[in-house]
Amino acid sequence: MTVLQPSTGWSYLITLPWRTLNQRLSAIFFMILALGLLVLDRMQPSLMENSRAHIIDSMAPILDAIALPMTAAENAATRVKTYMSLQEENQRLHADNARLTEWQNALVTLQNEKRELRSLLHFKTEPGLAYISARVIADTGGPFVRGLIVTAGKIDGVREGMAAMTGEGLIGRVVEAGNWSSRVLLITDLNSRIPVTIAGSGDRAILAGDNSNQPKLLYLPQDAILNPGVRVITSGHGGVFPPGLPIGAVTVAARGTYGVTTSADLGRINYVRLVDFNLKGGNFNPLQNKIEAEDTTR
């Protein structure tokens, strides 16, 4: 058992028992090593990126194994809840079905009309989108970073810059793709900057994450007055995302600023859809190149 001596300057090192001295010296060594890594990470982020992706890749099966029982428990709980409200749910679905059938009829008519008009104009159709569905195996969110790790990587066709969406709307972007797993940076993260448009008024803004659950709208026109609940969609500027992806609705935040309540519930995401839009500007990592990202998105 080691006994600690009162520390008085460097000379106390001589009086320490061997084991304590060993602890101290190796702690100093590893702290210097950690500082060196931090400096390296700051100066040469790309150097570290590959090793990060490899480590996450090798950890993916373990994270997956840990996530499985949790997902199963959540599914079971949802199933029990659904059984309990079966009748109400059935009535709601009947009503929804009637409403949606009307919409479907309208859509089919519109789609036919659009096709005919496009053929008249010789309109160049946009390339098809590639979807990759992935399961969330780790929620690496915390007070400092908002992100997810998902079970799809380069082997499945994932590449950096792909948009991550749920059925409700945009939730983030792939910032690092390993072979079997990828990292998604959520739109609520401090480093996320997305050019958006306010539906209806057409006002442009930058949706900036601040690690809270409501990202803020920055650089709005000075005279812009937004009503709460108005839809916010991507504007397509900067070439990162195509225009029109739903994000959420406007909320009035403190001191006359505006925030956005995301359509997707970012607190419980089990599956994401990674969408490849084949856009030129989508291949950068905001964590690495924040200044460049801000310039592109402004």
Binding site: M31, L33, A34, L35, D41, T140
Partner: peptide, 21 residues
């Protein structure tokens, strides 16, 4: 700490430094 940094997208070395400290 290094593993924590990688999994939590923190600058590499930050948790390592904190944990050793």
């Amino acid at each position: 700490g290094l593993l924590n940094d990688v999994l939590h997208f923190l600058p590499l070395g930050l948790s390592a430094l904190l944990f050793v400290g």
